[in-house]
């Protein structure tokens, strides 16, 4: 099912992940979140932007354990823990945040 932003339609897979990484814009990220009834706050964006930077550097979306540790290093222990990240992204931090970041589902995610 494609997602439409500003009259432009973007292809997504059966789980709602963007098919073409290059399509992504901040607006599209917001639209993907709205589909899940999730309103993105600055705290969400901090994680989403981190994931995009991680992908840019390593060409992969990190597994949740890796994400948690890396967030802890970058943004501090109060954010680098499962409780904080699951509160932001109840469907699974890596899985859900990657979706809004326009990235593929993390390797090893089922």
């Amino acid at each position: 099912m494609p997602i439409e932003v500003n009259g432009v339609s973007h292809e997504t897979d059966e789980e709602g992940y963007l098919v073409n990484l290059a399509d992504w814009t901040r607006e599209l990220g917001e639209a993907l979140a709205t589909e899940d009834d999730c309103e993105l706050t600055d705290a969400h964006w901090e994680v989403i932007n981190f994931l995009r930077e991680y992908y840019e550097e390593y060409q992969i979306a990190p597994a949740v354990r890796v994400l948690t540790k890396a967030i802890g290093k970058r943004l501090g222990k109060d954010k680098g823990n499962s409780k904080y990240l699951y509160e932001l992204f109840p469907y699974g931090p890596a899985k859900q945040a990657c979706k809004y970041a326009g990235l593929p589902k993390p390797t090893g995610c089922v």
């Binding site: 991680y54 550097e57 390593y58 060409q59 992969i60 990190p62 890796v66 540790k69 890396a70």
Partner: peptide, 8 residues
């Protein structure tokens, strides 16, 4: 570039 993520 992914090999650099192995440490993580």
């Amino acid at each position: 570039p992914t090999y650099s993520a192995l440490g993580d």
